[in-house]
Amino acid sequence: MNRFSRALLSAVLTIGAASAAQASLLDYVGQCVPFARAASGIEIYGDAWTWWRQADGRYERTHRPKTGSVIVFAKTARLPMGHVAVISRVVEKRVVMLTHANWSRQNGERGHAEQDVTLFDVSPANDWSRVKVWYKDVDGLGGGIYPVYGFIHGDVRPAAELTSRNPDYVGALIDAYVPGS
């Protein structure tokens, strides 16, 4: 390796290390799967809808949300690869906040991370099998109802940035229970 190549490699490594040190989980732009893996510590790979099956025997799976758990959305026409998100706060029996990536548009593009987003259980049996998700594009719960497999609970501490210091519990409850607010 010549002197120029070594200097270039050194500069790239220095810039990369400085960028990584400043990077935040919430600066992420990309797909939901790598984001959920980084935020939850749950080591599952592949399309989001496959996480539920892959977790069987490796992680606890339930129909009860818990902070740090991953909710797995089923594959549908609107979500051909499903979706995964991480529970950031449990607000009450049918309302939680989640942190995820690649849902709403921000600055005209998808992929950005969103923190403490309202998720509302609209399933008839109160079992979290059907949900509505807060959608930044409309500043409220979107019109779609999404089928969900359940929650995967990891065995490591989730990322510190999973929730904000002062999440808006009241806003989450209003989003869920006061349509059109």
Rank of each mutant, 00 (worst) to 15 (best):
A159F: 09
I15A: 15
L13H: 09
A18Y: 07
L13P: 07
G30W: 11
R78G: 13
K93E: 15
P34Y: 02
L13N: 07
V117I: 12
R165F: 15
R37W: 12
R165T: 11
E92I: 07
G41H: 12
H100K: 09
A176L: 04
H100N: 13
V95Y: 01
L119P: 09
R105F: 12
V84M: 01
R94A: 14
I42V: 11
G46Y: 06
A85M: 05
L98Q: 11
V95W: 03
L162E: 00
I174F: 13
F4V: 13
A17E: 00
A11H: 04
L119H: 08
G82T: 00
D155E: 15
R89V: 02
S24Q: 12
Y59K: 08
G41A: 11
P158E: 00
L162T: 01
A48I: 07
V84L: 02
G142D: 00
Q22C: 11
E109W: 08
A74R: 10
A172W: 04
E114G: 06
P167N: 02
G82F: 03
D139F: 09
V170T: 14
L119D: 07
N166C: 09
P34Q: 01
T99V: 13
V133K: 11
V86D: 00
R110M: 11
Q106E: 11
Y28A: 08
N166R: 13
A39M: 05
G180I: 05
R94F: 04
F120L: 10
G144W: 12
T118K: 05
P167W: 02
A21V: 12
M1S: 12
A172S: 08
E161G: 11
Y177T: 05
A77P: 08
H83K: 04
A38V: 13
V91T: 00
T67S: 10
